[in-house]
Nucleic acid binder design. Structure first.
Lengths: 158, 158
DNA sequence: ACAAACCTGACTAATTCTGTCAAGTATTTT
DNA sequence: AAAATACTTGACAGAATTAGTCAGGTTTGT
């Protein structure tokens, strides 16, 4: 029941992009530095977010990324779905699951995981970036301190 | 955002044990056959559930496992926590997380994952085995059809 | 033309997960 | 007491996934 770093980094990256909303594109290099994410890895993540229609890219000098919609219309759920795939606690509950549970209709657990999945989705979709921004507005958060080496494998990072 | 097979198999195994509530212990072999779970793997799972105080074992001939409490007092959340560890979307939100997020107080995402985690917990804790039993009561579910080979790595199983 | 910046896909090292195996220990029936 | 049944424990290996890197591209503003 963990999120992968893709989802976690994605939210942090989008926070920076959202912060810059209305001020033109934000360069990926800038995002990477502010949130201490590897540039190459961040490229992958932003690319996915682009394909999902969450951000738009501007190429060339002074290019970068910007939100494709207003912060109030972008939820955490949108981001998680784009980066971690559909919210489905069990493989057999994914949208295209033709090779579903071999117990089919008769499965004891299916409805349980389905119900819980809906609740998770609700929770994720109830949080917008507008809210996030407001929460940190005015705090003028300083950028995180650089650490020589991060703890292995995405641990110790939100 | 997937459950591991431990959690999924655990719920199914407990469903069988709960079904037998009040009728004495149910042999592990029986559980394994009814739910088509590898015996050796199931041993691991049941052992964990025992340590968590969810089931009790009876040794010797005609022994087996039985629920340590009434089905109405056992929730899906209890099982998931016992088998998958604490519900924490991010490593830094786990109970003993001394080596937490290096962004500490200032972390943009921390509160998001914390809130969502609470919602998940609520959802999991709102479902009791009593409810599960009632739902399948009288249906006299036949045991799942045996398949020669399961799809790889726990896929295709609820 | 140049440089800033995004685009793409291949690749590998680490980690986690799944499931097996083997050699126990405990309990009850006969 | 012996045998049968069942639980206990820990080590282990193969597969899948994840995290992150690298090495090239291509696009576009000046």
């Amino acid at each position: 029941m963990k999120l992968s770093t893709k989802g976690k980094y994605g939210v942090r990256a989008l926070f920076e992009i959202a912060r810059n909303y209305g001020k033109g594109p934000l360069a990926i290099k800038e995002i990477a530095e502010r949130q201490r994410i590897s540039l190459s890895y961040l490229e992958q993540i932003l690319h996915r977010l682009g394909k999902a229609g969450i951000i738009e890219s501007v190429r060339g000098p002074h290019g970068g990324y910007e939100l494709a919609r207003k912060p109030v219309e972008l939820t955490i759920g949108d981001v998680v779905r784009a980066l971690e795939g559909p919210i489905a606690l069990s493989h057999c509950l994914e949208p295209g699951a033709t090779d579903g549970c071999y117990q089919a209709e008769d499965c004891v657990a299916r409805m349980v995981w389905s119900k819980v999945g809906e609740k998770i989705e609700e929770a994720l979709d109830s949080i917008t970036f507008e809210q996030l921004l407001r929460q940190y507005h005015g705090k003028d958060r300083e950028h995180p301190v650089h650490r020589k080496k991060l703890v292995a494998a995405g641990k110790g990072v939100c």
